[in-house]
Simulated assay, not measured.
Amino acid sequence: MDHFTTTDGVRLAYSIDDFTDPWRPSQPLILLHSAMSCMERLRTWMPRLVRHFRVIRMDLRGHGQSEVPGPDSELTIDRLIEDIRELMALAEVPAAHFVGTSAGGYLSMRMAMDHPDAVRSLSLFGSTPGFKGGQAQAWLPRIRTEGLRNFLADTITDRFPKDMIDTDRVNWFLDQAGSTEPKFLERFILLMDGQDWSDELHKITCPTLLVVPGAGKIGDYSGFDRMKESISRVDLRVYENMPHNVWDSQPERCVEDTLDFLGNEGFLEPQGTAANLSAQSKETVA
């Protein structure tokens, strides 16, 4: 993990990991987390991703190991996008594949709409076209009175399957997500609650993987229908009976679907001895 300071003076945490074959060109992939999260929550994604991509993660401002901005600091979608662009400049990455979970997907979409040359592909997990029409107005009073961790524990089945409740994984999630600074989180949620770019989805022209949690209740899920209709190149995959946080509960499946999608789009080459032997076997059969 390292840190950089944005042009408006906020210190943000980031990490760059690359275990691709050193004799191959390394493609950058930017992995963006959800609200109340951090890059560490996507740790289990890393072993498979870093064999294929130079993976760049960051803690969004006010999250994880990044600085919590003061109450008078700017908090807009444009500012969050600028944070990403400044990290890309630091990493000398003009364009990348973007993978986003929930709010991280919102920002990935905005990157694809506003800076299309910087986005080679999108992989979106539980990300509708903004959070307008979501549950923010109902959440905030409960968070203020109950506390964030208690609120998350009481609504845990909105995020995890019932058979995972009271497991170490879910308890760790509650500790991590519940540690988000409440006043900043309220600002962040209210910002996202005002976003709806359904009428701009046609601007997304890159290949897009859209993963829909089949039993999701967070956000306006009719947005997925609008995305399917408006984005020209969509690979839609539904995780039946899965609540919203599929990236937390089904990390291996999420990574495999991401790699499968990117492979189908021609962004991946077979790697390693096993892949070469498989290719030779196919040639022999042919």
Rank of each mutant, 00 (worst) to 15 (best):
Q65K: 09
A136K: 04
D78P: 08
L124C: 08
L152R: 02
R85L: 15
M88P: 06
G64S: 07
E67H: 09
C38V: 00
T128F: 00
T44H: 15
P129D: 03
M111E: 09
D59S: 03
R54K: 14
L60M: 15
T76H: 11
T44W: 13
L140D: 07
M113V: 07
L140V: 12
I56W: 08
L140R: 06
G134E: 00
Q135G: 13
F131A: 07
L87I: 10
W45S: 11
A112T: 02
A136Q: 05
H63N: 10
A138S: 10
V68C: 10
Q65A: 12
R41Q: 12
A89C: 03
I56C: 02
C38T: 04
V93C: 13
Q137D: 13
E86T: 14
A138F: 07
S66Y: 10
M113D: 08
V119Y: 04
L148D: 08
G126H: 00
P47I: 05
Y106Q: 09
V119D: 00
E146I: 04
C38A: 05
S73G: 09
P94C: 09
I81K: 03
P71D: 12
A95D: 07
D72F: 01
L107Q: 09
A89T: 10
L75N: 10
M39N: 03
G100N: 07
S121V: 11
T101Q: 13
G105C: 09
M36V: 02
G133L: 03
A153F: 01
S73A: 15
L75P: 15
E74Q: 06
A89R: 01
F98K: 05
I143E: 00
R41M: 11
L87A: 12
R41C: 09
M36Q: 08
